[in-house]
Design a protein around this nucleic acid. Sequence first.
DNA 1: TAGATTGTTAATCGATTAACAATC
DNA 2: TAGATTGTTAATCGATTAACAATC
Lengths: 213, 213
Amino acid sequence: MKKGSKISNAVIKRLPRYRRYLNELKRKGVDKISSRELSDLIGYTASQIRQDLNNFGGFGQQGYGYNVEALYNEISSILGLDKEYKMVIVGAGNLGQAIANHTSYYKAGFVVCSLFEVNPKLVGIKINDIDVRDCEELVPYIEDNSIDIGIICTTKDAAQEVADKMSFAGVKGIWNFAAVDLEVPETVAVENVHLSDGLHSLAYHINRNHYFE
Amino acid sequence: MKKGSKISNAVIKRLPRYRRYLNELKRKGVDKISSRELSDLIGYTASQIRQDLNNFGGFGQQGYGYNVEALYNEISSILGLDKEYKMVIVGAGNLGQAIANHTSYYKAGFVVCSLFEVNPKLVGIKINDIDVRDCEELVPYIEDNSIDIGIICTTKDAAQEVADKMSFAGVKGIWNFAAVDLEVPETVAVENVHLSDGLHSLAYHINRNHYFE
DNA sequence: TAGATTGTTAATCGATTAACAATC
DNA sequence: TAGATTGTTAATCGATTAACAATC
């Protein structure tokens, strides 16, 4: 990355999307692409694509363009996808189970190590080959297993307490599916999913009949 | 809403959040709030809050502030949450089931009418009291039941075809959980969830140790 | 070399913040 | 009326787009 300059979040949010399209190109056997061609594909301006990439280094070659595979690898590495992340999920209800399943199938590098539940009926069972443990064990489990990411799939009322425990136990990031905004120490990154918010803004657009991203 | 002026998407995306906080205040019995107090709570500047709200009308009262319940109702109505939406989910796997469950519990106004699947083992069963039908029936079902919203919980490879069918059959909006960007007619609104993208940008922030929203 | 396309600086556009007059 | 707080205009800030010199 370029010296000390901090990258805007708008840029970071676009990186996974670049990566998805590059992956697709790779699959199709394309090995070179220009910012212009990428623009036609993704829908960002060629100018923006070059600006975005140049925040991290000059990955292209004048007169040629970008090497698809090399660029894919660069972006993966910028995002930290060359590392492995150990995760736990709190809340083994429908959503927690779905995330457990979804994540382990699709995302090499993100490993769900355990689920946690307050409901005693679920504690002790296995879901998708992953143990469901009692929430009481959450903190020591995170500590003992060097868990990187905590995933919150609880009700909104329980979410902040879970986030506190996770932060205390030393997770580096929280992926939050509960409908609240969490307060966490600065050292912990948070990604909120807020499904209802998305559905609500969809409702707005439906009534206005506008296409949007 | 103010005459013809079109509201930026950034504003729309903040509305569900305002609404969440107002709901919380309502629950606590607070009946009046100033933009300043709301700012302390939500984290947007008081100035931004007033700007946002004034896109839709003057809901406040000088020297007093905003009436919590009235403002909550206004925002709900702007978002179109005073209407009812009939929805179908395509893909009755883990994620589809979780969304079916999650949505019917938490969101009055959003009704999941049916699930659809290609896997014959699932067709015919009920999930959470909702019938699982064969994907072949998708188009006529949407037409016959005036479905408003289609929810896509399929693999990325199937998603575009499903979106085409949904659009053809006349849905007004698509809530897309598949990891692709859909092409739909202008008359159809799309809200993408792209779970992996979120996880990937979380990975970035974990490695930079930055708090972000 | 000529053509193409990047990397980067400069211009524009839009969104956020500040300021303040209007008014409850 | 005096105090508070909105609604709204003006100033600032940041992000996107355009332009072009560098260079493969």
